[in-house]
Design a binder for these strands. Structure first.
Lengths: 240, 240
DNA sequence: CGGGATGTGGAGGTGATACCTCCACATCAA
DNA sequence: TTGATGTGGAGGTATCACCTCCACATCCCG
């Protein structure tokens, strides 16, 4: 087991600090202007503060909070990002994309069960450390159209991994892809519940559940009525 | 299995309809007045509506909603119950007490593992069907001082059941009482997430987890760092 | 180095939502 | 019939989030 779930504390940080400095967003033409130096600096501050605040408190955190954390006025936030959704989009787009990268990576494992564990472990790690990311991925009424697209792309890959792991007799056969968002939901709830008082506690229950997913013993109580696609969609779309 | 508190669809209903009709609350002296007939009727309507609304939407539902559901004005609600907390108290006190009854009952099982399953299964059933009850039991910043008292009384009983089940080799040894509120939290999250679209889905994951708690195979990944009492208390007290 | 372009802070507008009060009016019951 | 009791729901108060606006500050080009 090449210990894929490992720590590497804060692997989420780098992506957004790379681009966004002087030119606002993608060079989609000559319409983009160059930011004044102080403005660019403040834009970065806002992004950094937003990353922190949303990671800790989820997307329910207000932009006033973000502005305060960034040491700027609210007006400054809104000058750079037309509204909250735009800021969230800018912050999470690549982190969401990472889920797809992760799924593709997990698909390359020879042992599909290990691939499954790799995906679930890493995905949970990121989403538990970052409440905002969890919100974006679990609620499609949130911004980030990218989230829906990514989910759509990840699902078949993960389905394949699951089926291969089941065919190999490693994963219990009554598990389905749609169980995965439910795992995230469950462990996310633990994470929210205990908060900073025990930030790693979710791992205890991840281990418990993963142990329970191994198909290596007789006498499983069969799992009935897996969540349907419609149910998952409805849950994600529900107003909150 | 003498399944005493069994299903009887909506076994939660009767308790509060028995007393509260003509005399408001317990006969704690001559200070209590007799309600006018229509007032008593409305009081019952309010209680029934509150039971339904809080069960479906949790304690976050507003009293305006309750009043609307009861077909009365908000003023009527506040005439009978000085504030929201009082109404919640009146509604949930006995349902909370039931948890203690359930624990005592579970303690009488010869097979401690079956007692454990009995308790967990029933407790979850009630709390999943009734979001308000879950809120009251999981968040001590909510009303219902009775909740804290009941938790305090249930804990040692449940601890004993757990330890006996472990001594009998049925329950994996690294489980602790404090895991139980986490189970409720996890399954409650699933329940909230899918809502009415799949109201029984939580059972799927309860089965999965209970299966995972059975101590009948080698090679368990050991569970580290169980939630401490302090962590649980903090979670329950946290502002929400 | 000066002046126009650009950026800033944060008070406050708007709207939502919750708890709860108040009182003109309705209903009951002696 | 008549006062005691009860009622509805408009609206007071508070909170909180998103977002706008503009007097003032800061930059940077010529």
């Amino acid at each position: 087991m090449n210990e894929p779930i490992s720590t590497e504390s804060e692997s989420m940080a780098p992506p957004y600090s790379a681009d966004a400095a002087v030119v606002a967003s993608t060079d989609m033409g000559p319409a983009e202007r160059t930011l004044r130096a102080d403005a660019a600096r403040n834009r970065q501050r806002v992004l950094a503060a937003a990353a922190q605040v949303f990671a800790e408190r989820g997307l329910d955190a207000s932009l006033d909070d973000v502005a305060h954390a960034a040491g700027v006025g609210v007006g400054t936030v809104y000058r750079r990002f037309p509204n909250k959704d735009a800021l969230v989009d800018a912050l999470f787009e690549d982190k969401i994309e990472n889920m797809l990268v992760l799924a593709r990576e997990a698909a390359t494992f020879d042992d599909a069960w290990e691939g499954f564990v790799h995906f679930v472990g890493r995905a949970l790690e990121w989403q538990m450390r970052n409440r905002g990311l969890r919100d974006v991925l679990l609620h499609s009424d949130r911004p980030c159209a990218g989230a829906a697209r990514t989910r759509e792309a990840v699902t078949p890959i993960l389905t394949d991994i699951i089926e291969r792991a089941q065919a190999a007799g490693k994963l219990r056969p009554d598990v389905v892809v749609n169980d995965v968002p439910m795992l995230v939901t469950m462990l996310g709830a633990v994470s929210d519940y205990v908060g900073v008082n025990d930030p790693e506690l979710w791992q205890r229950y991840m281990v418990l559940i993963l142990d329970g997913l191994i198909a290596d013993r007789a006498g499983w109580t069969p799992l009935n009525n897996p969540p349907s696609r419609a149910v998952v969609d409805a849950a994600m779309t529900k107003c909150r």
